[in-house]
Amino acid sequence: MLERIRQWIERRKGRQIGEHDFSNLPEPKTSGNLLLDDCRLIILDLETTGLNPARDEVIAIGAVAIQGGVIHLDDQFDLILRRPELNIDETVLIHGIGNEALTHGHETQDALLYLLEWMNGDPILAYHSAFDQKFLEKALKLQIGYTRNHLWMDAADLLPALFPDIKPGGKGLDHWAEHFGLEFSTRHHAAADAMATAELTLIAINKAIKDGVKTVEQLNTKLQYHRRLQNMHRF
């Protein structure tokens, strides 16, 4: 009996992360003239049940914030979602999140609302962001009916665009991390991957500012230009 009460309390705890004002969520910022050396950027990484956004689900969200070119560790996001109904057998070996962690995780809707509030509408960077963007947008739409557009940038474009002369062993997060001698605390943990991505982003921002890139918009333009260039090479 005691054990069940304990579990129930644990679940209650996981359920509520403050009060959410659904009608008053932060406004997504368009890049406009946000200054790189001043603005807040969200570096996000998701762990999912698989690679297919149509079928698979988000199970963990890790994010860190860069503000004024500095990672602030008191401003981070590290949640496992409570989704006991999900089948995670396929991926449990990669991210190490088992059924138990999922049943004790946070209620999805709460977590997503909390994430939106925490992100505060700031631009989002992710490594191979298309993947994270699809998953997150789907989860937001299905779970809480949220469909607003946020500004996403791909950290995977950031480094080759700013360091065109560096050719690491490949395009992955690991390759760039290895090139700069970064260490992952653990790999395939949303928060740790977000941290490594954020560290690379710090390196990129340092370079961008030296290259005269001042605003998020200018940076985004540079990324898009790089992407177009890449696509041209492909044909």
Partner: peptide
């Protein structure tokens, strides 16, 4: 320490 830390990069 860890919770109040910031991480900074210097080229």
């Amino acid at each position: 320490f860890a919770e109040h830390a910031t991480l900074r990069f210097y080229a």
